[in-house]
Nucleic acid binder design. Structure first.
Length: 555
RNA sequence: GGUCUGUUGGUGAAGCGGUUAACACAUCACCCUCUCAAGGUGACAUUCACGGGUUCAAACCCCGUACAGACUACCA
């Protein structure tokens, strides 16, 4: 009997030259400190990273770095339909944009670092075959010749009889084909997949532990799942997971909750081989609210914000996205951030217990808020440098101005910045232009003016001319303002707003109406940062120019 | 049909048998103020999907139900 199995196994896997033991020696247990976590991100080479995957890659990376472990990038290309040209580089770039750098695995389309490779599944065929072959030898796997139409048929029967769907028990037609017959059919060139001869019993319960959900009770797996596919002889996800994560000595498998259902399969596989089982953490999915008001998985196709590239284009700083990801990853992070306001959170330790089990809603508003606070912490020169990089790709016109007026630009960004309570108005690099455009003549050619309180042309002329001729003061902020108040008193506007509120009819208006007019004439906007600083930077000549320009636009 | 997961305010959530049900975002009000952005103060869940049960005591434990989601492929 054993001899026959050997003949069968050799026939099924003619390419196998090594044994499992050989591989155990090639990929020995890692020599890492106690508690070090080996994690892996294993995408298909689709060329881009979706927000949900980014979160899990981010967490994989974080956990490995926290513990001085290893973070591996492995490419799962066992389904050729999912592969795309230069798909690996695309993924690597998306990760790199958020400072997620794998310690081990693929570093470009064809090369890798690390001693546990290859890191592309299609190049590991012989390894999978070796493991599958050992199962055949032990009578725990068998060739299955069922065609897809046969499979469909049994499924239909199962549906009709309201029976559990799947390839198991008496529905596993090829499970008990005599070895002789199997040998002959293979010799005759019949196509086959290799299936696990599951030793499980659906009526028995097992309890599996998940790092975020705790213990989960399942029936044992009794499905004879496919291990190796027929046409390309590549493994299925389940089998590749077993072989790769064992041989790469992965300690923690973090994946989406869509994998919970196959947890029993994976546990069984590890048991059969008597391999040390990894820890599992099944993460909640990233959701969004649909137009119809229902929750659904964030979709790459429908939702621009699902694509990681979107944040790059929008100019959301990667630091802000990372901060946001961390708040989604661990619910206690925000509190920590409050006490440690910084963009470097390497001191914050990821905790599986603080991972939410339910899918979280993707909250763009929150991201923007985090981003705003991030900008609040930055120096003007840092903002300048980063903005220069962003505009070089997305806003050529602005970029050229930044280069031309470097020192001036830094001063502009510094308005109310490096002080105790800095401004928090920028939300993204993209948004900055709208906050500062009026500081550049080149961007102020045809402004659309907001409408100030004071609209009468004659009055406007009087105020602006009087101000420029008699009260303009740019050396000191306090003096600047007291001069404006002085003028208000002279022209019939209340210099003190409280006085104005008491007796509004005694005045033509109040200081804020006057400064509002000056503000609009200079910037076209009703709302801006501190007017004094703006005027200080603009300088006398430009102020005159803009007063005139404004007066000329009024009818 | 089967298996599994989840359900706390507009949103993200804390909570693990006794809490005024944290905190953050958003919203609103007031204060500060030359306008904004900020900042400060306060408001915002009589209640934790629903119905039962256990208990002196339940958002927390048990049982049902509903809803949402995942899986049930030679896709991952």
């Amino acid at each position: 009997m054993d001899d026959k199995l050997k003949i069968l196994a050799d026939l099924m896997f003619p390419d196998v030259t090594k044994t499992i033991l050989d591989y155990e020696k090639m990929y020995p247990e890692r020599d890492l400190k106690e508690g070090a976590i080996v994690s892996r991100f294993a995408p298909s080479p689709t060329g881009f990273v979706h927000m949900g995957s980014l979160l899990s890659a981010f967490e994989d990376n974080k956990v490995a770095k926290d513990t001085n472990g290893v973070f591996i990038l492995r490419i799962e290309d066992t389904d050729q339909k999912r592969s795309v040209e230069n798909g690996i580089v695309g993924i690597l770039n998306d990760l790199k944009n958020f400072d997620i750098i794998p310690d081990e695995g693929m570093i470009d389309e064809n090369n890798s670092v690390g001693n546990y490779g290859p890191y592309i599944q299609s190049e590991r065929k012989e390894i999978y075959h070796t493991f599958a072959k050992s199962l055949v030898l032990r009578g725990l796997a068998y060739p299955c010749f069922c065609t897809s139409s046969e499979l469909d048929e049994t499924r239909e029967i199962q549906e009709l009889n309201k029976e559990r769907i799947g390839y198991y028990g008496s529905f596993a037609k090829c499970r008990n084909i005599p070895v002789d017959e199997a040998i002959n059919r293979i010799k005759n060139g019949e196509e086959f997949v290799v299936r696990l001869k599951s030793p499980g019993d659906f009526n028995k319960k097992i309890i599996l532990h998940d790092l975020v959900r705790g213990d989960i009770e399942f029936p044992e797996n009794d499905l004879d799942i496919v291990l190796i596919k027929s046409t390309d002889k590549l493994p299925t996800y389940h089998f590749a997971h077993l072989v790769d994560d064992h041989l790469m000595r992965v300690t923690h498998v973090m994946r989406g909750e869509e994998w919970i259902a196959s947890f029993p399969i994976h546990d069984q596989l590890f048991s059969i081989f008597n391999f040390k089982k990894p820890n599992y953490a099944h993460l909640g999915l990233v959701m969004k609210i649909d137009e119809s008001g229902t929750r659904r998985k964030l979709s790459k196709r429908k939702d621009p914000e699902a694509s990681v590239e979107y944040y790059h284009q929008e100019g959301i700083p990667k630091e802000a996205v990372k901060l946001y990801l961390m708040t989604v990853a661990n619910s206690n992070f925000e509190e920590w951030l409050d006490n440690n306001p910084s963009d470097d959170f390497s001191d914050f330790k990821f905790d599986f217990k603080k991972v939410s089990a339910s899918g979280s809603l993707f909250d763009v508003l929150k991201l923007l808020n985090i981003s705003k606070n991030y900008f609040g912490r930055q120096k003007a020169s840092t903002i300048y440098d980063n903005l220069l990089v962003w505009t070089s790709e997305f806003d050529k016109e602005f970029h050229d101005l930044l280069v031309k007026y470097k020192d001036y630009s830094i001063k502009v960004f510094n308005i109310e910045r490096e002080v105790e309570k800095p401004r928090k108005d920028y939300t993204s690099y993209k948004s900055i232009r709208n906050f500062v455009f009026y500081m550049y003549d080149e961007l102020f050619k045809n402004p659309t003016y907001d409408t100030p309180k004071i609209t009468d042309k004659k009055e406007i002329e009087t105020i602006l001319n009087t101000y420029y001729d008699e009260y303009l003061e740019l050396n000191d902020k306090d003096l600047w303002f007291s001069k404006i108040k002085e003028m208000c008193d002279k022209l019939g506007y209340a210099s003190n707003i409280k006085d104005y509120k008491k007796n509004p009819t005694n005045y033509k208006g109040n200081v804020s109406d006057v400064t509002g007019l000056i503000r609009v004439s200079l910037t076209s906007k009703m709302n801006t940062p501190d007017l004094f600083y703006i005027m200080e930077l603009l300088g006398k000549d430009k102020i005159k120019e803009r007063f005139t320009k404004y007066i000329n636009t009024i009818k």
